[in-house]
């Protein structure tokens, strides 16, 4: 029992600090690496403004274009479900909000724990289905490399261990809670070095896409 408490204390203390440091500094470096490259001035006469079109694309790309939805329904629906489920579990589960409050001093209302529980279950099942799709869909299987499976794993583990911890399915409790926190730390540490970065860079990417098309008079 005492070793599992030591473990929990470490992951909650120094472990978390290390992971947070790597996450924050890593993400900042990665964003900086993108932004400092800049782009050359465009001397062509614009047909439309970049700013508005870029911001609009940032929002509209959240919904799939009609034809692609019909052609990739599973990727779209599955993608929605697990992204939303993941974010809800992360940001609307009361103990998580408590933690964020203790670190950053900001808080917001959460939702009922049993609701988060149900959403988590759906998210876990969806993530497994997404993995299955990656392994079987001809395009996704062809494109996927070790990084795609690694990022899937480090996304999946916090969901799984969180679920196990909530239901106290592993004894002793400090062990499973510690594993949950450790899995999140793994996610945070790998985040800046992998395509998990898309969670931030998609904002830049969508903006450029929309801005460059908007300049030509097309809403992309």
């Amino acid at each position: 029992m005492s070793t599992s408490i030591d473990f929990l204390l470490w992951v909650r203390g120094p472990g978390f600090d290390i992971a947070l440091f790597i996450f924050v500094v890593g993400v900042l470096i990665r964003l900086l690496e993108v932004v400092i490259l800049g782009r050359k001035p465009d001397y062509s006469e614009p047909r439309g403004a970049e700013l508005g079109a870029g911001l609009l694309t940032l929002v509209t790309r959240t919904a799939p274009e009609g034809g692609s939805f019909k052609r990739s329904p599973f990727t779209v629906v599955g993608g929605y479900i697990w992204h939303i489920g993941f974010l809800v579990s992360l940001f609307l589960f009361v103990p998580h909000i408590e933690l964020i409050d203790s670190v950053l001093g900001i808080r917001w209302p959460g939702i009922a724990s049993n609701l988060v529980d149900a959403i988590s279950a759906v998210t876990i099942v969806t993530l497994v289905a997404m993995l299955f799709s990656r392994l079987t869909h001809p395009v996704k299987r062809f494109l996927s490399g070790p990084e795609d499976y690694l990022t899937w794993l480090v996304t999946f583990l916090p969901m799984l261990t969180g679920y196990l911890a909530y239901h106290r399915m592993i004894d002793p409790y400090p062990l499973v809670l510690g594993l949950h926190i450790l899995s999140v730390e793994l996610l945070m540490v790998l985040f800046p070095f992998t395509k998990l970065m898309h969670a931030f860079t998609f904002i830049i990417a969508r903006w450029y896409n929309g801005a460059m098309a908007g300049r030509r008079g097309v809403q992309s």
Partner: peptide, 25 residues
């Protein structure tokens, strides 16, 4: 290499949806 290109490569998660938009695929 510029910021748009770097942001695009940083963001791809190999979802494969672009294949369905390409007539060669």
């Amino acid at each position: 290499m510029n910021a748009p290109v770097a942001s695009f490569f940083s963001s791809c998660v190999n979802c494969g949806m672009c294949a369905e938009a390409c007539l060669f695929y």
